[in-house]
Design a protein around this nucleic acid. Sequence first.
DNA 1: CTGAGCATGTAACCCGTTACATGATTTC
DNA 2: GAAATCATGTAACGGGTTACATGCTCAG
Lengths: 186, 186
Amino acid sequence: MVLKYILLGLLSEPASGYELKKTFNDSLNHFWAAELSQIYPTLKKMKSEKLIVSKRMRSVIGPDKKLYSRTKKGKEELLKWLSGKPLYGYYRFHYAAQAFFLSEKKDAKKALQFYCELREMFQTKLAELEQIEESLKGMEPGWLDVLPEESFYPYLTLRMGIHKMAGNIAWCDECIAHIERRVHKK
Amino acid sequence: MVLKYILLGLLSEPASGYELKKTFNDSLNHFWAAELSQIYPTLKKMKSEKLIVSKRMRSVIGPDKKLYSRTKKGKEELLKWLSGKPLYGYYRFHYAAQAFFLSEKKDAKKALQFYCELREMFQTKLAELEQIEESLKGMEPGWLDVLPEESFYPYLTLRMGIHKMAGNIAWCDECIAHIERRVHKK
DNA sequence: CTGAGCATGTAACCCGTTACATGATTTC
DNA sequence: GAAATCATGTAACGGGTTACATGCTCAG
């Protein structure tokens, strides 16, 4: 139930479900995602658990919205989660599954093509993240040290995405070199 | 339905559900996992789709087992999947969610501790992967070039895991340095 | 005779996705 | 009047996990 804790974390400022979804799109997207159809029921459940309260608000544009705020109990729950050990989980990489069985194709050139396509995908993702980083960066050299904490820690997770993608690209380059050497040896 | 294709890929040699589970434990574990309670129904469904056939086999030790083999249709299905573009998917990193909200703790030392623990986790995983790699490596310098294809491509996915972990560790080191600088500045 | 490993399965549940349903307001 | 954006929800389904159920054989 990680979504619950993420919503709790985002509700340091009151927000509606719809607004929370937008935050996902532009702040947490490189490591998490959630659809509205999941957010709404989760908020409902959190409210029944008294982790948050809601207030009906008139919206200037569009229909009324429900502004959710975190309760004291909610804040405690969040801190408890943050105090736990970092949790790793298990990951499923679809492209790795494909890469694992590449020998079935009996054609090293196809394998080479696969890794080149994969590299391009990673390169695109990396460029996206670097663009976000660029827009965040101040122009003075000490900008990072004066960033407020609420922006500093999220920035570090953006760096995670960048490191991951760089690692992926390095992997692809290595694989491409290995496969090419094999092709030429033959 | 990636599991279906993975099982299809593993069935280049006939095997039972129980044996396939063991393969997961020692060959694909760094990028995929599957429980027996998921493998058995999946095999059943694949059989009904005529992608595989089964044969009852007497086991020397323990009860009878069902040996599954891939059919021609199954092989075709597998090749079709392998010919598709590499699929990326979306990923959810629990520890990143925690890292995102570290400012809530109001204590940079706690944040530092979090990243140190995370780094240790990655280091442990990396060591595991490197040990597997060590046991795979031959002693002659050209060992990789003479590896048969069915071992070469899986080896490359092991390299993926190693690159990912190295990237994660580099990220942690960077974060730790940033946070320490902030603490000292204050 | 107990426990570990071999072997196969079902049931309940949880998380997340896609599709569907509804309706207001603003802009072109 | 159509399309885009704001706003909230429900229903069906899929993939995966945990727990449960059963039974064989071998080693200590």
